[in-house]
Nucleic acid binder design. Structure first.
Lengths: 337, 337
DNA sequence: ACTTGGCACTCGGGAACACAGAGTGCCAGA
DNA sequence: TCTGGCACTCTGTGTTCCCGAGTGCCAAGT
């Protein structure tokens, strides 16, 4: 039985513990929040909450600390996202508005988020999957090598160097470029494989090996690269916090693109905020941390995700507010460009 | 008066302290290194070394620890760069050989260096200043915006979105593109400003405002961007080391591009290894750290720098060996492509 | 049936203290 | 110039002790 007062007690415990970083006892609770009951009553409630796994004591006869399950309940039912101050909103707007290209947008976003939350910010590059081909360029580098450049309508540029099977002259390259552009211009990247499939037929027979090589690189760059880039910032903010698990593991996880991918990727709902708390986290090195993730994108399409990572003991309402706000502003910026 | 034996004592102190991380005393020295003299003699030498500022004791009647000045002497006169094992060399070669483009080269390099030295690796992107224009591309994004892409012979791609003063049609863009390429193809980036200066004259009068806008962006991207990109990896390796100065400052410095630039930039001789030790370091947050930097580049041109950052108490011979080796291999890779 | 005050109990953390061990400086003798 | 001996000085560690915050439980009150 979890009645209203017990929930109020849990909320008070979470709030106090987050702000003081010390186990909170029944007396302190009664003093600082006016719950209208005596410490003894609170003790009884706390005993129940502990039995149900929402709080725990670090050692016998110390105050209580929220467990991961307790934070979960807090986030789901007891807190509401805290909106940013208007000063903060203005700061975000002006800071993001100055970006010159997509790299710059991502860079600014991640720094902004790190500074705003005083935690580690993580931003995934916008997927190119949902974007469209703006232009394809083939640039000869030497007799047997050329650079393949793909420009999308979101302003992203993908480049690859291609080793050619044999020497090709400029004309054949020019021809292929023209055909490629005619065929692919404006088409969504997800459709590219289909279009590419019957493209060789539109070329003279002697060009087909060349085309095959280039197209395979094109497809490869779509598959391999399309989601893998993630950047982070604010690692310095980890220095203050003390993790149950070593700081080293956290830093290692941050440098592993694969881990970060999974971290951001396994969120079910893109349109809402996703919070994963402590042990809910799949990766063992991050068991002492929580993440707050939001999707962002231009228009209705979700392009990618961004979020922050911090100790389980974080101020969830504030962090969630910042993440949501930044995601929205970035979406705006991307939609406008 | 610093005679040979005192130098030998200093070397022994540095080596022992680096490997044990504990202040080293006269008796331990006499035991572990066969200097042929008694602890008492060593004590006398140590007293002299201390007076001259090469070593210090953390507190009265503890062992000695090298000072920054002591490390300096060690690096300059007492150590020689330790070559890598052939297994390590092979590992470097195969790992770097798999890179597909310039971003990949840099990424692999920085990770490799971090893993090899078990410290923080820092790699500056190759300057585009020394490279040549391979191709210039103008891609219309909308009526009044176009993307400007510059591809260099080193495989680097620079992109910028340009806001146009008024609506332009495809033909004018195509014309400008042709002129730009005819004029700039193959010319060194340092010459671009000169060539660009009298370029408007080769265009019809009505295109000049357009050209001016684009060219100003081109010049700007050369100046602004050309050196500023630096990446690092291996921050997790900082977690183990204990700095006199806070870990936080170091992490902050690593995320400040400007600080990193100065760190790598202020090395006098590009062809040799540069070591900056502790307080020799200009930035206050990095006073407890040392850096080892080498230049790299294809052929005779130095393109940029790379290095590692670690606690002052590092194994200089090994670190220097790794940095030098990686710099050489990267240079090879870049020269080959 | 819940709430409350009282009370005994438990631990963690800090202060005070002693002590062993490593290291030093200095001096007299080889 | 080197060496052995010796007295001295620290730090770090382990021990003990005690205070205080906090708990669990119980009996009485509403």
């Amino acid at each position: 039985m979890v009645d209203d007062r017990k929930l109020a007690v849990l909320r008070a415990i979470v709030e106090d513990y987050v702000s003081t970083n010390e186990p909170v006892g029944s007396k302190a609770l009664a003093d600082r929040h006016n719950l209208g009951v005596s410490p003894a009553t609170i003790r009884n409630d706390m005993a129940v909450l502990e039995e149900q796994g929402y709080i725990a004591q670090p050692h016998t006869s110390a105050g209580r600390v929220p467990t991961d399950k307790g934070y979960r309940l807090f986030v789901d039912r007891l807190s509401q996202v805290k909106p940013l101050s208007s000063a903060e909103k203005r700061a975000i707007e002006t800071f993001l508005a100055g970006a010159v290209d997509i790299d710059d947008v991502v860079m600014r976003t991640v720094r902004l988020l790190a500074q705003l939350t005083r935690q580690v910010a993580v931003v995934q590059y916008p997927t190119i999957t949902n974007s469209k081909v703006r232009h394809v360029e083939l640039v000869p580098l030497s007799e047997r090598r050329l650079m393949f450049v793909l420009i999308t309508n979101t302003g992203r540029v993908e480049q690859r160097v291609v080793e050619l099977p044999d020497v090709v002259d400029e004309n054949r390259v020019a021809h292929l470029r023209a055909v490629l552009n005619a065929c692919l211009d404006g088409c969504g990247l997800t459709n590219v494989p289909d279009l590419v499939a019957d493209l060789p037929e539109r070329l003279p027979a002697e060009d087909r090996p060349l085309a095959a090589t280039i197209l395979s690189v094109l497809l490869e760059s779509l598959v391999d690269r399309h989601d893998e880039k993630i950047v982070f910032a604010g690692a310095a903010n980890l220095a203050g916090a003390d993790f149950t698990v070593g700081l080293r593991d956290v830093l290692e996880a941050l440098e592993e693109q694969v881990v970060l991918m999974r971290l951001l990727g396994e969120t079910s709902d893109l349109s809402a905020l996703t919070v994963r708390i402590g042990s809910e986290n799949p990766y063992t090195g991050l068991q002492g941390t929580s993440i707050v993730v939001a999707g962002y994108g231009s228009g209705d399409k979700q392009l990618a995700r961004l979020g922050v990572l911090g100790p389980t003991r974080m101020d969830y309402p504030v962090t969630m507010g910042a993440v949501r706000a930044v995601a929205r502003y970035v979406s705006q910026i991307l939609a406008a460009s």
